[in-house]
Write a protein that binds this DNA or RNA. Structure first.
Lengths: 151, 151
DNA sequence: TATTGTTATACTCTATAACTATA
DNA sequence: TATAGTTATAGAGTATAACAATA
């Protein structure tokens, strides 16, 4: 009989392990969490404006300026002129940046395999289903439809 | 058929939700993540030295000085003289700090219930078991016993 | 000598507000 | 007038190194 708090603690423990793995990745490359996050977004969205990055990272535009400054200094990205808007810059990975993004994707896959390889597929299906149901339950509880509609 | 990376993404999604809940707790009380973490440790360990906090939080002693300074300023903790070591200080919750610690424990329980209440217990048992096996598998892979022994 | 905590210094992430250049 | 990004300023978290007081 596992209690709800025990389960939450197990989730948090796993989250800590996964986070430690990210931290190792960052340390090995002299990068920080927020900068890797930006590169990750860049890897999925391609060259984008800083506004778009601010939205995706949920930080202020000012903050993006700082993160991009750092990544320009370390040679991971460049600011390219936007073809149709001279106010905007397109943050674009350099070859070094693109290489890190590739490593990031590879590390993600490797981590997933390291976590789940060898586990029984039937039980993993249950695991995944419970994960998704739990996230769904949480989101509904946090933002009840009635409260949302009342605004 | 859920792939390993899909499962990892599901884990990360849930972790983000849980973290957002922590952020809400902090914002509502004018606290920060590291300071709440310190209070959480204090709640479990009772009054302790800053050295002990540095170990528990995995940060430098210098950093603990800063965190404790902040919590003293906000009235959550005090530095009490150590009864048998005049070098050391015992970081001790005030009544305000103790109240926050109680709320922290309550919020943890509530979150767990919000996440898992209504779920089928049989499936939650599988879920918990897979969580623990996964953490175990990861730890073994990250630090193989042979590599550890070789040092 | 070793340990506890602080002062000194520096870097990163974060935010708000005011400003420039462009749409 | 609105938008993209920067400069100015500030606070929090983090680290290393040097130091004081005490063990």
């Amino acid at each position: 009989m596992t209690s709800h708090t025990d389960l939450l603690d197990d989730v948090l423990r796993l989250a800590v392990l996964v986070q430690a793995d990210s931290a190792r990745f960052e340390r090995e490359r002299g990068l920080t969490g927020p900068r890797v996050h930006l590169l990750w977004v860049l890897g999925h969205a391609g060259p984008v404006t800083q506004q778009a990055l601010a939205l995706a990272l949920e930080v202020t535009p000012r903050n993006v300026t700082g993160l991009v400054d750092g990544l320009v200094a370390s040679g991971h990205v460049t600011r390219e002129p936007h073809p149709r808007d001279r106010r905007a810059a397109l943050v674009t990975p350099t070859s070094i940046g693109a290489a890190v993004i590739d490593e990031l994707v590879a590390a993600h896959t490797e981590l997933a395999d390291r976590l789940f390889a060898g586990a029984d597929q039937q039980r993993l299906e249950v695991f995944g289903a419970v994960l998704r149901e739990t996230a769904e339950r949480f989101s509904s509880a946090a933002r009840p439809a009635s409260a949302e509609a009342a605004r």
